[in-house]
Every structure is written in C-alpha cells, then in structure tokens.
Amino acid sequence: MIEGKKEREAKHKHIVGILVEDQPGVLAKLSGLFSRRGFNIETIIVGKTAKPGVSHIVISLLGGDRTLEQLEKQLNKLVDVIKIIDLSPERSVVREHCLVKVASNPKARADLINISKLHKTSALDIGKDYMIIEVIGKPQKIDNFLDLMRKYGIKEVSRTGINAMQRSGQNNHK
C-alpha cells in the first residue's frame, strides 16, 4: 500500500463535538466528508440537544494534530455545521454505554451477578443460558469489563460510541 501523509503522522485519539442543523441529510453530509477526505472515524453518536432544531454529534477518531485541524476546518465549511466543540478528555467528561450478552448457565450466574455489582453495572435481562449486562463508563472501563466477561463467553456486544461534554461553557445553548 502506498502511504499517504495522513498515515505518516503520529496518531492519537481525538474527540470532537459538532452542533448541526437538525435537517434530513446532515449525517450523510458529514459522513461523506469523512470518507472522501480520508478521515478515519472510530465512533459517532447523534442526538438531540436542549435547543429545538439543533442536533449534537460526538465523533472520536484516531489521527495526528494536522488531521484533526483539517477535519475541524472542513467541518466548519459545511453550512449545516453550527459549531465545533473541542472535547479532549482533559477538559471533558467522557462516557460510553455498552450492552453485553454473556453466556451464563445457572452455575456461573451468581458469579456474574457479583462481578456486575462490583463494577456498578446492571443486569438487564436474564435467560436460561445468557445474561444481558449494561455497562456505563469511560471507554477503558468498558474494555476492562468486557475482558473480564470473556472467560464466560461473550455472545454479543453493542457499544454506543463515545459521548462527551465539556466541563465548562454552555455550548449547547448559545
């Protein structure tokens, strides 16, 4: 493979918040931009804000500082993008939500419930050979919990992707 300049940069994880017009097709505009400019998005979540007509998108991506700068500038050029918010972990609260379906026979069940309590997760559903557990926390906490579950047998995982909010300011309401 021929390396582009994006591949040569020192990469780290970035989290960016984007306030957009709540219009049909806005997500397509964003994802089109990511793919045609070669930005590698790891997670993306979309939801409403307190202000009608404005949606909030949080993306996380792996890339160098120049890539991030280009991404922010290119996003700003989209007419439907109202504002870009820096959600770097040093200045933000970062959380993720995860549902995991673990194999559990009656023997393992007590064990799983204990581990689950200890990690402040909740068991949402219990079947005869499985259990669905909800984990909320920093992405690392979810990784760790999933590691613990591995030996019981993970049947399914569904993660929301990273959500974050700046510790100060009121970007959503401006």
């Binding site: 097709g25 397509a28 505009k29 089109g32 931009l33 045609r36 050029k77």
Partner: peptide, 14 residues
C-alpha cells in the same frame, strides 16, 4: 441528486 451533488457543491437544498 442530493446525494450525487453532496461532494461537489458548497451546499445543497431540497
């Protein structure tokens, strides 16, 4: 056309 013109316009409206 909204999809087709997306990467080649400054903005598009339906």
């Amino acid at each position: 056309m909204m999809g087709i013109t997306l990467p080649i316009t400054k903005h598009n409206y339906q």
